[in-house]
Design a protein around this nucleic acid. Structure first.
Ligand SMILES: [Mn+2]
Ligand SMILES: [Mn+2]
Ligand SMILES: [Mn+2]
Ligand SMILES: [Mn+2]
Lengths: 220, 220
DNA sequence: TTTCCAAGTTAAGCATGCCTAACATAAAAG
DNA sequence: CTTTTATGTTAGGCATGCTTAACTTGGAAA
């Protein structure tokens, strides 16, 4: 097992690679982790020697399969913890990231699998990011639309809320508009662009301002 | 905030003091933490300098109020995590200690308070140890008896199970004999020392072997 | 009382992971 | 092409927390 520090390097490299493609420069990593280039160069050498990545001086780093596997494991833990903290313990969206940043390094395989099961194997975290499964497989991102663009009469699943303010989240939670909740679009009122949605048999009206922040994926 | 290492020292010193009283020798701490005396002596000097304990060469250490406060905080986190992992996530009793040993150092005040609330402020952990509250106050230990010594017709709360094998725990769990569960003693059969207990209106028979391992506290 | 030994401490050294400062390189500007 | 500059690397140093080996110390045994 790599150290906490190394886990953070591997995770950062993985996500920088996703964002910018190709090989990742040591200074990109330094920036992301808020440490000096010097520290990153040094660590690149060590991680390469231990087989987690390929590193050629002045040419950046690229994860090996071994390194990618660790990165995905940490990302899995991070995202499952975020879902868990929000859905089970009621932490606010603004709090969970920092909390998960520490927990991700201190969670056994058994524990994270129990959490996964308890949450009924969610595929996406509260920010809409995919959660790798136990085997490291990444779920395909569904096509998302905002509630404003949803079609009357069809069923959708709530997927993401663009605004992380706890005010909006709490408002939606009171209406049972949880993350992953299935809903049906009942009506769209053209005079104010508000939308009537059905949740567990109950109808709620959402204003245009609220609806545009809720991303949903179509069901079936 | 002290480091993880320092938190573990303070916690160990606290519990050694509870067990053996008076000042704690550096080698007792070394034994408990499975490190050398040398490391402990050195750390004692540092912790004293930072005001967490009093230390006189060759005379052992004694926590200051500041050190005690940290120790109780870590113990609180450890025990709440243990309860949480068992009751909410269904980990086995044998797994939770090691897991909690890491989580206790990576849990914010806000998170542990949410966990506390979610569990409805338990006063004792699965081993029967008291859980300090948010203010660091330690609940009074109730008088415990084994189920074998319980009185017919009276109500009790399940407090502790002496055997940590998951087999026994799972058996009890199937009968709804959870930790903290209220039960009533219906009958004691003298020919085999088995006991009939009532849980949520349902009666169950427990053998002598099982009953002797279940500790309960009397209610009202 | 003196001696001896277990308990405890100090010294020196190592691994990790970071820093600053000095240096090297590649690529852009001239 | 050369020169400049931004990017990246190496060297040296420091804090933490551990080790082994050498040393004190205080109290029990003689
Ligand atoms: Mn996050
Ligand atoms: Mn992290
Ligand atoms: Mn424990
Ligand atoms: Mn610990």
């Amino acid at each position: 097992m790599p150290t906490i520090s190394k886990e953070n390097y591997l995770k950062s490299i993985y996500s920088l690679n996703l964002t910018y493609g190709e090989s990742v420069s040591t200074s990109q990593v330094a920036m992301k982790l808020e440490i000096t280039n010097a520290a990153t160069s040094e660590m690149a050498r060590k991680l390469a020697k231990q087989g987690y990545l390929h590193y050629e001086k002045y040419k950046g780093v690229e994860l090996t399969e071994k390194g990618r596997k660790i990165a995905l494991q940490i990302i899995r833990r991070h995202r499952l913890w975020e879902v868990f903290l929000i859905k089970v313990l009621g932490l606010s969206w603004s709090e969970v990231h920092d909390e998960a940043e520490k927990l991700e390094h201190n969670t056994s395989e058994e524990l994270i699998n129990k959490i996964d099961k308890h949450l009924n194997y969610p595929e996406f975290d509260p920010h809409g990011h995919p959660i790798p499964n136990e085997k490291g497989e990444i779920p395909q991102m569904p096509v998302l639309v905002s509630l404003l663009e949803a079609t009357v009469g069809k069923n959708y699943k709530i997927f993401r809320v663009a605004d992380e303010s706890s005010e909006l989240i709490e408002y939606l939670t009171k209406l049972n508009l949880f993350l992953y909740q299935d809903i049906k679009i009942i009506e769209k009122l053209s005079f104010d662009n508000s939308i009537i949605v059905q949740v567990n048999g109950t109808n709620h009206s959402l204003s245009e301002k609220v609806a545009e922040k809720v991303s949903v994926s179509i069901l079936k």
